[in-house]
Design a protein around this nucleic acid. Structure first.
Lengths: 244, 244
DNA sequence: GAGTGGTCTAGACCACTTC
DNA sequence: AAGTGGTCTAGACCACTCG
């Protein structure tokens, strides 16, 4: 039932530091370490790999830059918990200004195996998908209505696992149960008006302005592994980003 | 009239590679090289600085990561043109899907020396500012209405320079005329409805839905040097970003 | 004090661009 | 062929954390 996402064989033509990065990424995806675990030290990796410290450091730094690892001088290199499932919500106005982001409760409405809409199918590379409909709720107030599409071949059986075992954040769950590690995502924000169905779900009126957040999530190998679209009250919406 | 932004003296307690990065950043801000110019090679910088190649490379890599420089194997290290003044517009729906972003024409409405609103004053660290009001127009269609605040002490005389000499992009102009190099920016997207004045400017109706983009731009030294807020038709608005 | 990561050296060799 | 950046080595010493 559960299947592990295959990491591609490290390409021998790639520089050594990238090959090591890929091997480490594969071990992370395979669940060898849990969030906040210490990875082997530079010394150990140097011996294991037969490379010099500098090269090992470069492979590790690569994964730090990708946001997967965190280094602490004097203590070690740690696996970071993937936290950006929560980032959608940091951007809503009701979040406390400076405190930790509140993670909304999930209320799953439906999970079905279904044919993905063409946009999702094109991005995910298959029509055979699992669809999840859920609401995100903070203190009894409905914040967001989400529709999530997953390729069935990676998440076989997701439509029938016990809902209570899933929890409010999906990305850690993807990793634990399916070995699919979400490394980065692309968001597109736009504005829309509520359809009657959306209005009912969000406890608003048809025609009310909504913020629309469309997201594609990518694995460590760069493959799209989830497509979702979320709607919420435009008036309370706030989205921050950095440009370089 | 024109004054160059002072780069802070490199802190001797900082690692050598960061001190070199700061010195290079200061030379870039001072206008020593223009966009697409070649910077001195690793070899030259190694001799000049008395550091080893590895350390010099690290300083350069830092500036590459910050988006300022670009390295091309076999030819050299080049100064990139700051291009993200145009990024606001890449996100509007009327942009060609895959082509190069269209840079809208600027129509400056007013430039005045004025007291900044409290938010801008707090971010910029002064109330004594220059305010610029302008429209951004693509093929005779009004896309955005912008209000830009600059600290007067950095941009002395900006309210009275010849408007025709400025051009559609401000950031290159800041660098050329005032030695202020915009290194990064923070955007915040939210939703609003048009006031009568905004509606008139944007050729829309009062109460119409608008996208609001608020931006703070930072110099190489990390100081906020511009605050702006822009409004445009919500229906055509589209904003993309990457999460890691 | 032992172990960790952070900085730095002084080279080597390779791949690529340019003339 | 000369010059550039890209990769890699095999160390050194330092700053920090933790038991």
């Amino acid at each position: 039932m559960v299947q592990i996402q295959q990491e591609r064989e490290p390409d021998k033509r790639l520089p050594a530091y990238l090959q090591l990065r890929d091997r480490l990424a594969a071990r992370i995806a395979a669940g060898e370490w849990r969030a906040d675990d210490v990875l082997p030290s530079e010394n150990v990796l140097t011996r294991e790999s037969g490379l010099s410290v500098g090269t090992v450091r470069r492979a590790i730094q690569q994964l730090v830059d990708e946001g997967l690892l965190e280094r602490r001088q004097g203590s070690g290199t740690f696996l970071r918990k993937p936290a950006f499932d929560a980032t959608l919500f940091r951007f809503f106005a009701l979040q406390p200004k400076d405190g930790k982001p509140v993670i909304p409760v999930s209320r799953v409405i439906a999970r079905t195996r279904a044919k993905a809409p063409s946009q999702a199918a094109q991005i995910l590379g298959t029509e055979d998908c699992i669809r999840i409909d859920r609401l995100r709720v903070v203190s009894d107030e409905i914040l967001l209505s989400e529709e999530i599409w997953l390729p069935n071949h990676l998440f076989d059986g997701f439509d029938s696992v016990d809902a209570s075992s899933i929890g409010p954040l999906l990305y850690p769950y993807y990793q634990e149960r399916y070995g699919v590690f979400v490394a980065r995502a692309e968001d597109e924000v736009s504005f829309a008006t509520a359809s009657p169905a959306q209005a009912q779900r969000l406890n608003r009126l048809p025609g009310d302005p909504l913020a629309r957040i469309e997201r594609t999530a990518f694995s460590l190998t760069g493959d799209a592994i989830e497509w979702r679209v979320a709607y919420g009250d435009a008036a309370r919406f706030r989205y921050r980003s950095n440009i370089t």
